[in-house]
Every structure is written in C-alpha cells, then in structure tokens.
Design a protein around this nucleic acid. Sequence first.
RNA 1: GCCGACGUAGCUCAGUGGUAGAGCAGCGGUUUCGUAAACCGCUGGCCGGGAGUUCGAAUCUCCCCGUCGGCUCCA
Length: 603
Amino acid sequence: MRPPEGSDYSCRSSIPRSERPPRMRGQMAGVDLDVLRHSAAHLMAAAVCELFPGAEYAIGPAIEEGFYYDFLLPEGARISDSDLPNIEQRMREIQGRDPAYERLEVDRDAALLEFNRRSQRFKVELIERIPEGELITCYRTGDFFDLCRGPHVGRASQIPAFRLLHTAGAYWHGDESQPMLQRVYGTAFPSASELEEYLQRVEMARQRDHRRLGRELDLFSLPEELGGGLVLWHPRGAVVRTVMEDYWRREHQRAGYQLVYTPHLARERLWEVSGHLGFFADEMYGPIAVEGDRYRVKPMSCPFHILIYRSRPRSYRELPLRLAEIASVYRFQRSGTLHGLLRVRGITQDDAHIFCTEEQAEEEIVGVLELASEMLSRFGFKELEVDLSTKPAKAAGEDRMWELAEAALDRALRRRGMEFKVNPGEGAFYGPKVDIHIRDAMGRRWQCSTVQFDFNEPERFDLEYIGPDGAAHRPIMVHRALLGSLERFFGVLLEHYGGALPFWLSPEQVRLVTVSDDQLPYALEVVAALEARGIRASRPRPGETMPAQIRDGEMAKVPYLAVVGRREVEAGQVNLRDTRGGSKTLVGVDELAARLAEETEQA
RNA sequence: GCCGACGUAGCUCAGUGGUAGAGCAGCGGUUUCGUAAACCGCUGGCCGGGAGUUCGAAUCUCCCCGUCGGCUCCA
C-alpha cells in the first residue's frame, strides 16, 4: 500500500535535507563544535531575553550546521530577519561583559520553583518529564538561567565567530496542536575564517539549486498558473528525461521485466478494494463524477498491475512475473511542503511489481538490488547506504510470511555484499522493506530505491497462481522503485552535477562555434555528421562573435564546443574545447564522431 | 495547514506618498571577429490580485493568491 517510490514518504521534513552530512559535526581544530554552538545558542537566548523582556525560551540545541533556539515572545512581539543584526549586536555586548557559563546542580523542587518564578512554562514542562532521581543541572550565564545538561564553554568570550542566519516558525515538540514558537537559527565556528568558509559554501549550494539551474538551463518550470507541485518539462529537460527513460526501459527489459501502460484514473471502488481509500486517502485527490460513478486519480500503480496479473488464471510456470511502468501518479501534498522538483504533486514513478513464489523471493530481491546498484552507479552514485526495516508493532500478514520476507531481504543483501543497517520495527504495516540512499556531491543523503514486500494487497485482491500440485497458492508481491520519482531524481542529479550533466545525459552534447559566419556551411556539415552518429549536436548562431558563442556555450554547460575557423575548414577538423576538462584539441570530424559515440557508450 | 519573510520587465535587482528605472535577455541595424560578453538603437510593466486610507499609492492598512525559509537534529 505504501508507495514504492522514494520521492516523498521517506522524509519527515519538507526538504530532504534532513539527511545531512556528518562532516560539520564534532571536533574541529581541537574545539568541540557542538559545545561551542550550544553555548552560542545560550548566548543568543540571553540576548533575546534582554531585548524582549518576558520571552519564554523552549529548547536550543546544537545542530548539524549550527544551532537554534525556540522562543515564545510576549503578546504582539515577533522576531523577523531584520532583528537578527540587533540580536547579534546584543550578543557581542554580552560577550563584552564576558559572563562565565556557571554549572549548577539543583534538586527538582528548587528547579521547578525557579522556573515557575521566571514564568518559563516550557522549562517547567521539561523538568516534569525528567525521570525521578535523575540529576538536574542548570547553567547561569549572567542573568540568563537555563535548564541544561551542558557542557558549555567557560566564558562567553570563548565563542570566537557566530552569525544568526534566519528565523522560522516551529511547533513546540513539532506538534501542530502545540503553540507555534519562533525559532532563530544561527551558526558558530572556532574562527572567523571558518565561518566565512561556511557562508561561502552555503552560497555555492544556492548557486546549484536545481530550481535556479532549471530556469537558467531552460530545463523545466513550475509556473504558478499551472498549480503547485506540477512540472512542465521543457524541450531540453525532456531530452534528458527521454535519455533516462530509454536507459531505464532497456535495463528493465534486459532484467526480465515486461513493460506495461495503465491509465490515470480508476473507479473509486478499486481504491476501496486496494485499501488506498482507507490508508492513503489523505494523499488522494477527490472524486470525479463519471456517468453517476465516482473515479479517482491514481496515487500509485499497484492496483493496476494487480488487475493485469489477475486478468487470467496464472500458472507457477509464468512466475516470476515482473511488470514495470514509468507511471504518472498524483498525490496531494500540503502546500508548505512542496519544493521544486524535490517534492511535487505530479510524480513520475519508476514503478514495478514482482509477483513470484515464496521460493523465488530471495532471487528476485537479489535481482532488484543488482539492477538498482547498476543504475544508480551509471548515474554517478557509487556510494550507497542501505536500510532494512523490519516488522512493526501493527502489521498485516502472517508471522511466517514476515520471517520469510525478512530472511529473503537479509540474505539477498549479504549475497550482494551490501552493507546495511537494520531498523527494527520500521517496516510498513504490509511488509518489510529495503531502502537505498545515495550521497550527492555535497554529501547530502537522498533516498532513491525502495524494495517492499506486500502481504496486504494480494490478500485484498485474492491473487493466486496454480502450483505444480494443481492447487491455488497466494503469490508473493514486491513493490519496487529504483530512481524513486523522475522529478526528484532529476533534481538531485542537477544539484549533484551543478547542472553540468554527464555527457550521455547532456541535452546538448556538442555545440558548433564559428570564428566568422564564413564557416557556417562547414559547421552545418559537421552537425549533420555528428547527428548521423546519434550525437546531440547544435548549430552556431550566425552573427555572434566567437567569444560570445564560447561564453554562451560555457554557460549552457555544453560538454564540448567545436570551434571551426578557416584553418579547421581547410583541414577538415574542429578545434574541440572540453568545457569540463578545459583542454583544447584539434581533431578530424570522423574521429570526433567516433570518439563521442564511444563516450556515450561508456559513460 | 501553521509561523516568518518575500512578490516591480523573461532573469537579477534599484526605486519608502508626487510622471515606473538599470543591467542582462529579446528585437532591428552595423560589425565578420581565433577560445567566457563587439557596437548603436528599439521594444517590453494592471509594481502578484482585490478592497481601503489619501488630492495622489509600487510605496501606508486589510483580505486573498503565490514563492521562499522552517515546523524535535529533544534540557
């Protein structure tokens, strides 16, 4: 029932950057960064309390890239980004007074009394949640007094470099029924130069934001007239997508999958039978009236593939049956969670369902893992991280099936030599699963592939096959997606490569550049020769100076610029500028075509 | 959905109550050039939408729409 795709349900927070690299954490130049940042959070809270008397402070931990602190401000007050410089200024003033971070062990009653006296309801609540008998510690920094486990730096002056970054709303305990607090994010480093470096890194990440690249490289758009979370693939983006899909289909056919097509709508009754209306209704769009009947837009493909399976009696001889489809599905996502291509409502899922016998399950999983590794590696993701999630407390299906499926996943992973982490109880209610994550060039972690057993739907649709014994048996069903969603995978690819896609995926692989318009006819011949070899080559723009053409080509991130002037025309060559490697080589046209065709092959 | 910020030309942005601006892109012309921007000119705006305040609103107020940053990484 749960979607076999990695695009959406895997991430708790709106932006999959919850899965961040560990590299900024821990020790740095002999200073514990977490301690430094946690101390900076206290310093900030002290400043906020001075500037906004009556502010209540909630929690203020060190996080991956800095720290935050949550506040409930007095009625009518608010902190906006424009207040950040003032708060920073006040933090520096406090540093000038250089208070110590003074650790106090207090007993529960004294702590409660103190925080009640200070009207700090969140701290009171936190104390009440501390188990009886556990040591309670507080820290005093000048006038600021906080419940805190520590440790901290000795004095406020020992925080050499900090910067407040932005504000946000955050629910107390992340719970929508709780009050909305104001969160202030900041970061701190042992030196000004490290802070500067960090800020530059953030700026670099901004530069390679896929939404920006999508516009600059004319790949896709998400116009607001169209509606939130819906993507228009422009011609250049569509070229990339076509290359991805062609590759995907070829690999799947080679791996024994059969391709199918299914519609975008189905009668509501089908979604009742499948259980989606019970478990997934919140993410489905409302009914569409059709001749007195109700239809729903599909959020997943599984019921369709099941109907194909069920279209006639099945024999054990035709198992495993692997049905694959690059399918458009639509899921409602709250507007606040939409994010470029990374979280959309119109999703293209690279979906497949495997129907097999119990004995075949392990072999099938091995096959899926192999295909996933191969495809992800072809796209440039060699480092994979794998999670195996097992039976949760509430689960459908017999224990015997769970044991069988978990064992199949475990053995398949071992056979493939893949290291993995077990997440006990994290499986879907309908079956255990394996998720594969990739790391991009900036160290961020993304979920892509997912392989999920499903004991629920075969039951609901009463699937069977006739075994060698002549009796009916229930097949095993496995959902799996390898790229997750094409939208999201494309977004990740773009950011991973900073827009400079590998040659085989490049929307435009070679662009001809002329020294003057005199070489136009020759340039067109070269384009034709390259196109004849299946290379995506494009003609020069007449009337442009050569430096302008070079610059345009560089900015469009075309892998190769083939410059032709009088000398090249005479020699039947091009002067090939490699925009990635920076080299320039003279090469004959035939050789160029052969070389580029080969480069597509190996990738 | 909720909190906050933002919304001015295709893009990046300036303009804080008094005639809507710049650069790039686009279009037209001139130039025909050897590895990241030739030169000149022109077009282009319901200042996100609606209501209000005002003699006068891109600018102030309210509502709506959209986008962006976030919404436990637990003292």
